[in-house]
Design a protein around this nucleic acid. Structure first.
Lengths: 343, 343
DNA sequence: TTGAAAGCGCTACCAA
DNA sequence: TTGGTAGCGCTTTCAA
């Protein structure tokens, strides 16, 4: 519990100088620095957060968050937004302002503009659900190199110079779905996969994890058919599910690896067969389907955390915390009918 | 983002007086109080945590935590302890000291002594995994009425004057276990329950939730046999499981509603039949059994949170936070083989 | 290169 | 009943 004041007294140096050493601000003689570091070592000095948090108010930090607009096909992002707003309220006590900007799922140009705008207006940190395209990666690299920390949320761009990623380990999500599917169907399912756009990494990762785990652990099960919904659209989701179930009467299980859950389940209800359905995320529509036993299980990815944690990381980074990890994976949380209610 | 200083300037009253009004310390004229409250209302004043956290150091708060000793029958509590120690480290920055004391699972007298000792030595708050017996309830009421906040953790005593409870909703845990059992066995399981002491509420609640959910949702399944392990002992756990499986050849599923998981599974392995096992908690031994596919699923109850959250609540309470709930339930987290690794 | 001092918001204590 | 002030730990700015 040593403080800067104590270190200052022991070393006969002013508190200002201790601060200079502590935060590597330069302008300290090697002799003094050595003495100060020795004392910090000896007293096992650790900076006090309450003190830092109070002092940082004067900086009036600004963070920006670029997120996908929630819509009927994918209401998931409104839970992310709720997480952002909650954390923003907390950070307000530390003098931090948070601004949110929305884009559609395929607006690369708009994301670039927003990134530029944040950087040009002296924002101190940026969080972004980033489209994984080369121009975005390049832009992130450019802004990061100016010293503005960037954290990716929900969708990642590795090797872009971003500070950290917060979100699902999608490959593992797929594995968990396969594991559940195996358990529920005694390892003998005839499976259809309703998938999403093949150029969105999270979808391909989920499918890969699912297929790998299934083939390694439930060799008697079989993936009968895979269809991708490339239009981010509820109607399309209904149509392809309807078609798949009609053309493949042996299918008795479905893995919904993308959004559009509600529409797909409408087709399931109409087919008249008993289908074991496993989906992702836990939106209100999905909860209702679990309640009605249409969906057997869904895999949640802590959307609130994906909104809150990136802001927390940015705050820590700006506040001089150097022990920030690269990956903050959310848990693959299994939701079934009986553990819905309590959060 | 109004501050005490601003309120003071507007109302032409000193900051000390604002503080007196804010914290109901008394000694303020009705006239002044009215004026101050009006200003706080108008500016939407909210106390700043960073400021409070810094100032509270001077109080040098002391919290005590009474916990069950981890042992081989129930290693669960070492994860709770880890949660306590982590939070204690965080609170150290606020000048808070945390002391942990251990008792066995049935030492009422020892718990009474420890409670008295904490109260007599001016501890500012107490957390306790409380044995649910009348003398303990009475003691908690006595100490609470002196103004020392008490939070129960893991095991609760309602109506004892304790401030809050942090832990499982055991009834729901039982429901989730039944829900899983139904899903995995297509609702047709012949089930044995290896239970624990009938006078521990958490066990009886789990069993009740399990039976209720099963009968309401999986009417084709059947509970064939229930045996209680009343000796908190690994060997006993092995013996009763062995006996149950031997005497009831139709049993094809087990719900382990108490600890002693490792020993029970030894008996499962020896019986030579395929048994669907569902257990509680996620200790290292249980993880290994999941890995080996001996256990199909286990229901975790966030032990780390059960250690950390009570201390957080005590700190908030002492710090003047009045919006503390009565129940802080942990999630019933479903762990299967594929979602073990990532935390 | 270093020191001194003010300030972040809140609390506690002494004096009036 | 009220005001004034010092202090919690850290940062920043100005002066030396």
């Amino acid at each position: 519990m040593a403080t800067i004041k104590q270190i200052a007294e022991i070393t006969n140096v002013s508190r200002g100088t201790i601060d200079r050493v502590l935060n590597n601000r330069g302008g300290v003689s090697p002799e003094t620095e050595r003495k100060v570091r020795a004392a910090m070592e000896a007293l096992n000095y650790l900076p006090n957060k309450a003190g830092k948090n109070l002092a940082i108010r004067r900086k009036k930090l600004k963070f920006g968050f670029i997120l996908f607009s929630p819509n009927s096909y994918n209401p998931f992002f409104s839970d992310v937004e709720a997480g952002i707003r909650k954390k923003a309220l907390e950070l307000e006590e530390f003098g931090v302002t948070v601004d949110i900007r929305f884009t559609s799922i395929n607006e690369t140009v708009r994301q670039l503009e927003l990134l530029d705008s944040f950087a040009a207006n002296d924002y101190n940190g940026i969080a972004i659900a980033a489209l994984n395209t080369p121009p975005i990666a390049e832009k992130i690299r450019e802004i990061s190199s100016k010293g503005i920390p960037i954290v990716t949320a929900n969708t990642d761009i590795p090797d872009s110079g971003r500070l950290a990623y917060v979100g699902s380990n999608y490959y593992q999500c797929g594995q968990v779905a396969a594991n559940l599917m195996g358990l529920i169907t005694a390892g003998k399912a005839k499976i259809g996969i309703i998938s999403g756009s093949e150029n969105i990494m999270c979808i391909t990762e989920r499918n890969a994890g699912f297929q790998k785990y299934l083939s390694e652990n439930y060799s008697e099960s079989k993936i009968v058919s895979i269809t991708a919904n490339n239009s981010y659209d509820e109607v399309e989701s209904y149509l392809i599910t309807k078609k798949m179930l009609g053309e493949n009467p042996e299918i008795d299980a479905l893995y919904l690896s993308a959004a559009g859950v509600h529409a797909a389940c409408k087709a399931v209800g109409e087919c008249g067969r008993k289908i074991t359905v496993i989906s992702n995320d836990c939106t209100p529509a999905t909860q209702k389907l679990l309640e009605e036993k249409v969906i057997a299980a869904t895999i949640d990815q802590e959307p609130g955390y994906q909104g809150a944690k990136p802001l927390e990381i940015l705050f820590e980074a700006v506040n001089g915390n150097t022990s920030i990890q690269e990956y903050y994976y959310t848990d693959a949380i299994i939701k079934i009918r009986s553990n819905l209610s309590i959060e």
